[in-house]
Amino acid sequence: MPKRILEMTALEVSRLKAEGAYSVGGAVGLHLQVIGGSRVWVYRYVFMRQRRRMGLGSYPTVSLSAAREAARAARALRDSGIDPIKDRQDRREAARLAAAALIRFDDAADAYIREHESTWRNAKHAQQWRNTLSMYAHPKIGSVYVSDIDAQHVLRVISPIWKTKTETASRVRGRIEQILDWATAHGHRTGPNPARWRGQLEYILANPKKLAPVQHLAAVPLADLPTAYATIAAAYGQSSRALRFLILTAARSGEVRGMLWSEVDLEASLWTVPADRMKAKKDHRVPLSRQALALLRSLPREAHVEHVFPSTRKGPLSDMALTTLMRRHKLGAVPHGFRSTFRDWAGEMTHHPRDAVELCLAHTIDTKTEAAYRRGDMLDKRAVIMQEWADYAAGPLPAA
């Protein structure tokens, strides 16, 4: 029998024998509990007037010296007012949560895209995200835990293409930034975002605007607009009609190509574009000029065809239909550029209020304060603007 047991009172020895526990740690409180063929180290202590037993592993997997060291550490916690068992449980839970929070960058990217793609304007946007990340980010940092990603990881992705493919590199950087922000919000990482431009990468990389100045979409010069409109009007086909309507309304290509007859009120001279086809995700009312109304009334209408400018398959025109027409006639611009021509016309040839002009283009008001005080859409003022614009672009028509 161990010497320590001989030094105990008869009552203590009796209790330990009944429990199969033998004291081997002296004042530390370490015991070896023997049950059948198993031998387990146990630290026995009193905390908040309650007797507690803390397992420290089995013998011989845990040696006597290791068990004594563990018991001393547990006793030090108890003496400082911390329950050793509760402390171990807390540390294990923290480790479990930390392990659960680990997620690799490619998994975080997939999760981010799945959560957000339903809010993006078109399916191509999600595919563009996947393609650029697959090409540039995943080979370099795809297997790295987001909690470990730092500025050097980000630079490993974008530095090789920062000067040669600046626009693409900027988009990849922004997408990495958003994914890491998502990871932080979901508890997968902490600390500043190493992909952030302001206050972070702007001090490491050259300014992308200086490397690759913004290229604005090509637009027909203001003075050439009437001639360009006449050229388009002389062309035959649905693309010509749609492009003329686009010019007359200063609308975006997707808004015109997806236009349905149910959106048009010919009597009220009004076209209401639903929110799901608007960039700002808000319904937009477009006052129709006499030229726009005449064009709509001249269109052939087929039963069961909802689109105003249907393709040969009776669906909407393709996104390249209008661009192809402009290229064929060597107009040196793109459909979206007519919105810039409209803005130049309004600024250089009229004195209409800037806000009314911006609303003609369905642009949002610059500040939240302005938006809060301006709840209307200035439809009557915009009707005057759009009629003057149509008169300039297509030539005036006699009043009805």
Rank of each mutant, 00 (worst) to 15 (best):
R15A: 13
G237C: 03
Q89T: 05
S340E: 05
S298D: 11
A76Q: 14
H352C: 08
L288G: 09
R244P: 01
T324L: 14
Q238F: 02
W345P: 04
R156W: 01
L211K: 07
Q178W: 11
A218D: 11
Q238H: 00
D391T: 12
G332V: 08
V34F: 00
R96V: 09
L295W: 11
V46C: 11
P160T: 12
D110T: 15
L293S: 01
D107K: 15
R252H: 01
M48A: 15
R327L: 12
S118N: 11
L16H: 11
S159T: 11
P208S: 03
I103G: 00
Y373V: 09
T369Q: 13
W162I: 04
Y229A: 14
V334D: 12
G25S: 00
W271S: 12
V144I: 11
R130N: 09
L211H: 06
R15S: 10
S38Q: 07
S253D: 12
M135H: 12
Q128S: 04
W129A: 00
Y112D: 05
T341G: 03
L397I: 10
S58A: 09
A356Q: 11
K86C: 10
R297P: 03
S58I: 01
F105H: 04
P208G: 01
Y203A: 12
A321T: 12
H307V: 10
A393D: 01
T119E: 09
A21R: 07
I158V: 13
R88D: 08
Q291N: 08
R68G: 02
H329P: 05
W182C: 01
V146W: 07
L97D: 04
R78P: 02
T231K: 03
D148R: 10
A371M: 04
Q238I: 12
R92F: 01
R44G: 02
H307D: 03
L359D: 04
K163H: 06
L260V: 02
Q387S: 07
A250D: 06
P398T: 14
H307P: 03
H116T: 11
L11E: 14
